[in-house]
């Protein structure tokens, strides 16, 4: 049962996975849900802005990170423009985590896992953990005293978990490779999946006003 208003004519199943995938996407994620021009009235709150700001910060992180990866440590520590781009990367990460945590608080207090959104919540948790590991590998990829200090202090903890054999925080090449290639792909892919999941189910309705939220009673003007 969908509320699309213009469901496409039923198409006979031809047994191909591409056709099945297309029909699934057309049914579950039509363009008017993927790129909506209107939102439910309860989305009119600054709390819903935190996630968008976090994604904006992520775009700045990835963009500045691409520039840093091209020119390398000899550039980001020495030249003035390199230090500037390095600072953009650093402060964008601070903004990212600042607003990711605010987004987490907002979604936690409105119990956003309700109404079939548990997978959306879980993917968000995995994104958060992956972002933490990305931040950690970034800190120890700086090629400065901070990086050495953090790596030296972290190695015993990592070794205590048993992961030190394949996650050596003292190995700059390994940490840098993971930081600039593996983890950014994981984080950005999961963020895209997270946004698609939100568009699939829509924004969770408020807890305190189920009648208004369900659309049975129109809210007061300006509410």
């Amino acid at each position: 049962m969908t509320a699309l208003g213009s469901d496409p004519a039923p198409e006979p199943a031809d047994g191909s996975w591409t056709g099945a995938a297309r029909r699934l996407l057309e049914r579950r994620l039509p363009l008017n849900h993927l790129l909506p021009s209107r939102q439910p009235f309860f989305v009119g709150s600054w709390v819903y802005v935190f996630g968008v700001v976090a994604i904006t910060a992520l775009i700045w992180v990835v963009g500045s990170g691409v520039v840093l990866a091209f020119f390398g440590p000899g550039w980001w520590h020495v030249s003035s423009i390199g230090r500037f781009v390095n600072s953009i990367h650093f402060w964008a990460v601070q903004l990212l985590f600042f607003f990711v945590v605010l987004h987490l608080w907002g979604q936690y207090f409105m119990a956003s896992w309700r109404d079939g959104r548990a997978k959306t919540w879980l993917v968000g948790v995995v994104v958060f953990v992956a972002a933490l590991v990305t931040g950690f590998t970034g800190y120890i990829s700086q090629q400065n005293l901070d990086a050495q200090w953090i790596a030296i202090n972290a190695k015993d903890g990592i070794n205590a978990t048993g992961a030190g054999a394949f996650f050596n925080v003292l190995d700059f090449g390994q940490m840098y490779g993971i930081h600039v290639m593996l983890l950014p792909i994981i984080v950005t892919t999961l963020v895209v999946l997270h946004v698609l999941q939100v568009r699939l189910r829509g924004v969770v309705r408020p807890i305190e006003e189920p009648a208004v939220a369900a659309g049975r009673k129109p809210p007061e003007a300006g509410a």
Partner: peptide, 20 residues
């Protein structure tokens, strides 16, 4: 964020959230 009014907030069609 909880207390500040959201600029340009209009009443929007509640049916927009009627999803599968």
């Amino acid at each position: 964020a909880l207390l500040a009014p959201f600029p340009g907030h209009r009443v929007i069609d509640p049916d927009d959230d009627d999803r599968p």
